[in-house]
């Protein structure tokens, strides 16, 4: 066997674990007939989750995931990803280019779906330390605070601009309405919040609640990143639309003197 036989086997061929278009017969998706089994029978969000994870979710779970998408659809052009969409609008770029650009901006270490990796790892680690190793919640928090130079910077328990997150109780309501019981990770997340609020006046944010809820439902962080790979597109689209019909350049215009130059003084190009 040559060192490249694996690639030779795939030359001119596609091998799919997901499905495909059987031209003239059906569109197959994960073993189902997409048109006859899904259309009108499943929600779009169920298919988003199926395509992202390979697993067909319950309607209740997809309703919760969809509600979380709403929580991430703020039409405020100051939010980083939305600002990119607004800037696309103000230069009259196309909607797909602008929304895709805003969505790519949300592939960030500070916000967006990648933060579920840290959020889910944090709550899993907390669960092991507190529930399995028997460390008290207060001690766990103190250890985390000590590890962050005395600051209560627990992953998922602070937002940079505000203290608090109104979306947590909204998603809790959606969970209750869809028949979900409070799972072990969500329960722990709230215990940590209670203790943290008492000592440091910090509370959980959406990341913490969503991370804990998704772990309780058996979602991995890889799944979460894939489900939410287009998590901000609706808010970005709103910011794009907010600006695209205006005169070009009206969003965030800057005069030359609005920029502070801190670089080299004027000089000449000499003999390159």
């Amino acid at each position: 066997m040559s060192s490249f036989s694996e690639w030779d086997e795939r030359r001119g061929k596609i091998k799919s674990k997901k499905g495909g278009w059987r031209i003239g017969t059906k569109v197959e998706s994960h073993g189902y007939d997409l048109v006859n089994d899904f259309v009108g029978k499943c929600s779009y969000m169920q298919i988003v989750i199926l395509n992202a994870t390979g697993k067909m979710p319950t309607r209740e779970f997809s309703a919760w995931i969809e509600a979380a998408f709403i929580c991430l659809s703020w039409p405020d052009s100051r939010v980083w990803c939305n600002r990119v969409g607004a800037l696309g609008g103000t230069v009259h770029a196309t909607p797909m280019a602008s929304v895709s650009a805003g969505n790519m901006a949300a592939e960030s270490l500070a916000y967006g779906p990648r933060t579920f990796i840290k959020g889910m790892n944090f709550i899993k680690s907390a669960y092991k330390t507190i529930r399995e190793d028997g460390v008290a919640v207060a001690d766990f928090i103190q250890n985390e605070v000590d590890a962050h130079g005395g600051k209560p910077h627990l992953m998922g328990y602070a937002r940079p601009l505000v203290r608090g997150d109104e979306r947590v109780s909204a998603l809790e309501r959606v969970a209750r309405d869809n028949g979900f019981e409070v799972g072990p990770y969500v329960s722990l997340a709230f215990e940590i919040e209670e203790e943290l609020a008492k000592k440091f006046d910090e509370v959980m944010n959406l990341n913490s609640y969503m991370s804990a809820f998704m772990i309780d439902q058996g979602v991995t962080s890889t799944d979460a990143c894939r489900i939410y790979s287009a998590m901000v597109v609706s808010g970005v689209a709103a910011s794009y639309v907010d600006n695209v019909d205006d005169k070009p350049g009206l969003f965030s215009p800057l005069q030359v003197d609005d920029i502070e130059y801190r670089g080299e003084s004027e000089r000449k190009v000499i003999g390159l």
Binding site: R163, E166, F190, E193, A197, M204
Partner: peptide, 20 residues
Amino acid sequence: MSKLSDNVRNRGKQFATRLA
């Protein structure tokens, strides 16, 4: 389960007013 997070308060973080 908890309403602690419903109390949303601005931290008053200062943002840039100019680019540099």
